[in-house]
Lab assay of single mutants.
Amino acid sequence: PDFTLHWNGITIHFKGIDEEQFRHLRELLDRGVSLEELEELAKELIK
């Protein structure tokens, strides 16, 4: 499924991740993950 997340004025689209992965990403963003960390995470998910 696809998810869209609005965070700090940025709209991020996640394609092909499951709800569990999306929930994990939201928790990280709510905790204050940096954009660099988010990019690293995205690379991991894409593999």
Rank of each mutant, 00 (worst) to 15 (best):
P1T: 12
P1F: 14
P1V: 15
P1R: 12
P1I: 14
D2Q: 13
D2Y: 13
D2K: 11
D2V: 15
D2F: 12
D2H: 12
F3D: 01
F3L: 07
F3W: 10
F3N: 03
T4M: 11
T4Y: 14
T4L: 09
T4N: 06
T4E: 09
L5M: 06
L5D: 01
L5S: 00
L5P: 00
L5I: 12
H6S: 14
H6I: 11
H6T: 15
H6Q: 11
H6F: 07
H6E: 12
H6W: 06
H6V: 14
W7N: 05
W7K: 12
W7C: 04
W7R: 05
W7A: 12
W7Y: 14
W7F: 13
N8E: 11
N8R: 02
N8M: 07
N8K: 08
N8L: 08
N8P: 02
N8F: 07
G9M: 02
G9R: 01
G9F: 03
G9Y: 03
G9K: 02
G9Q: 04
I10S: 09
I10M: 10
I10W: 02
I10R: 06
I10Y: 07
I10F: 06
I10A: 11
I10Q: 13
I10L: 10
I10V: 13
T11V: 11
T11I: 10
T11L: 12
T11H: 10
T11F: 07
T11E: 09
T11D: 08
T11W: 06
I12D: 00
I12T: 03
I12C: 07
I12E: 01
I12L: 12
I12V: 12
H13G: 07
H13P: 02
H13L: 08
H13M: 10
H13A: 10
H13W: 09
F14I: 09
F14H: 00
F14T: 01
F14R: 00
F14S: 00
F14W: 05
F14Q: 00
F14K: 00
F14Y: 03
K15F: 13
K15H: 13
K15R: 07
K15V: 15
K15M: 14
G16S: 05
G16Q: 07
G16P: 04
G16E: 09
G16H: 07
G16D: 13
I17E: 02
I17W: 05
I17H: 02
I17Q: 02
I17P: 01
I17M: 08
D18N: 15
D18C: 02
D18I: 04
D18M: 06
D18K: 11
D18E: 06
E19Q: 11
E19L: 11
E19R: 10
E19H: 11
E19F: 10
E19I: 09
E19Y: 11
E19W: 10
E19M: 04
E20P: 06
E20Q: 14
E20L: 10
E20V: 12
Q21M: 13
Q21A: 12
Q21T: 13
Q21K: 07
F22E: 04
F22A: 08
F22Y: 10
F22M: 10
F22D: 01
R23A: 11
R23C: 02
R23Q: 13
R23L: 14
R23S: 11
R23H: 14
R23I: 13
R23M: 12
R23K: 14
R23W: 14
H24Q: 15
H24C: 06
H24E: 11
L25F: 08
L25T: 00
L25M: 05
L25G: 00
L25P: 00
L25C: 03
L25H: 00
L25W: 03
L25D: 00
R26N: 10
R26P: 00
R26G: 07
E27R: 07
E27A: 10
E27Y: 08
E27V: 06
E27F: 07
E27P: 01
L28M: 13
L28P: 00
L28V: 07
L28T: 05
L28W: 12
L28C: 00
L29D: 00
L29N: 02
L29V: 09
L29R: 04
L29H: 07
D30F: 12
D30P: 01
D30N: 13
D30S: 09
R31S: 14
R31I: 09
R31T: 13
R31D: 09
R31K: 13
R31P: 02
G32R: 01
G32E: 04
G32N: 06
G32L: 07
G32Y: 06
G32H: 05
G32P: 02
V33E: 03
V33P: 06
V33N: 03
V33R: 02
V33M: 14
V33D: 02
V33T: 12
V33G: 15
V33Q: 03
S34H: 04
S34Y: 03
S34G: 08
S34L: 06
S34F: 05
S34E: 04
S34M: 04
S34K: 05
S34P: 08
S34Q: 04
L35V: 13
L35A: 08
L35K: 06
L35M: 11
L35D: 02
L35S: 04
E36K: 12
E36L: 09
E36A: 11
E36N: 08
E36I: 09
E36R: 10
E37F: 04
E37Q: 07
E37V: 08
E37L: 07
E37R: 09
L38K: 00
L38P: 00
L38W: 06
L38S: 00
L38R: 00
L38E: 00
E39N: 07
E39Q: 12
E39W: 12
E39L: 13
E39I: 15
E39A: 09
E39T: 09
E39P: 02
E39M: 15
E39F: 11
E40Q: 06
E40G: 03
E40T: 06
E40A: 10
E40C: 03
E40I: 06
L41V: 13
L41K: 05
L41A: 08
L41N: 01
L41Y: 13
A42I: 15
A42P: 00
A42G: 03
A42E: 03
A42D: 01
A42M: 14
K43A: 14
K43H: 08
K43D: 13
K43S: 08
K43W: 08
K43E: 15
K43F: 07
K43Q: 14
E44A: 04
E44S: 03
E44P: 00
E44R: 01
E44D: 08
E44Y: 02
L45I: 13
L45E: 03
L45W: 15
L45N: 02
L45D: 02
L45P: 03
L45R: 00
I46R: 03
I46D: 15
I46T: 04
I46Q: 07
K47F: 15
K47N: 15
K47Q: 15
K47C: 15
K47V: 15
K47W: 15
